[in-house]
């Protein structure tokens, strides 16, 4: 039986050495490029006619736009408009990455903690910078919510700070763990299908069911990552 973790292996496709850093084009990079291509073709292709009454493809493009736009509007408010392109790109990138990863023989770049943590860190640092730019030193008040009795402050402030710094970690781990676990599970069941011969129909049914669930998870995790980004952005812009 094949090692279920083998699918997460990074394979170099083109050696690029910048001297100080290894910038080789890998299977992970290929699927990042493919995600950008898929999202770009989907959005630009769908809007090529720009008709007032949209067709099917254009409707799908508009639905994805409205979906993220509503998310930003509901969770951040009108001053979140400025960050809409970033949040939209983030959502589409993760969604395309997760979905492409479900294709057989493909690679899921969101199953690598380095990738998810880098994205979470960008969100974390970005929102923190925005918060300081907007509120200055007053941002430290974020760690002591209004109406807190002063005697619990020594206990509450460290907890708040800790939970704040755990944000990128939970954000990165959630996506990474979901993707890794799901794909490992699929691979394990897939191995059983081959190993069990005729009785392999049972794990085959399970694989079909799990694939369905994985499709939902692929969407859901992209959504969760994006909506948490919106919530953190809202905290940065409006504090509590």
């Amino acid at each position: 039986m094949a090692n279920p973790l083998e699918q997460f292996e990074i394979k170099k496709m083109l050696d690029v050495d910048l001297g100080f850093v290894d910038a080789s084009f890998t299977n992970s990079a290929l699927f990042m490029v493919l995600s950008v291509a898929v999202v770009g073709v989907f959005l630009i292709g769908g809007m090529r006619q720009r008709s007032l009454v949209p067709g099917r493809w254009q409707s799908m493009v508009e639905i994805s736009y409205e979906f993220v736009a509503n998310m930003v509007r509901d969770n951040v408010g009108s001053d979140g408009r400025k960050y809409f392109p970033f949040i939209f790109s983030l959502f589409m990138f993760l969604l395309a990455g997760n979905m492409l990863g479900l294709l057989p023989y493909s690679f899921t770049f969101t199953s690598h903690i380095a990738v998810t943590f880098a994205m979470a860190l960008v969100v974390f640092i970005g929102t923190t910078v925005i918060a300081f730019a907007k509120h200055g030193v007053k941002f430290f008040g974020f760690f002591l919510p209004h109406g807190t009795p002063i005697f619990v402050a020594p206990l509450l402030v460290p907890i708040e700070i800790l939970s704040y710094f755990f944000r990128p970690i939970s954000l990165a781990l959630r996506l990474f763990a979901n993707m890794t676990a799901g794909h490992t599970l699929l691979k394990v069941f897939g191995g059983f299908v081959v190993a069990m011969g005729v009785a392999g129909v049972v794990p085959l049914v399970a694989v079909v069911a799990v694939t369905g669930i994985e499709l939902i998870i692929a969407f859901l995790q992209a959504f969760v990552f994006t909506i948490l980004t919106c919530i953190y952005l809202n905290d940065a812009l409006h504090m509590h």
Binding site: K12, A23, S24, F25, F109, H112, V115
Partner: peptide
Amino acid sequence: VWAPQLIWL
């Protein structure tokens, strides 16, 4: 494998 992934990310 982190560096090449991050660069391409």
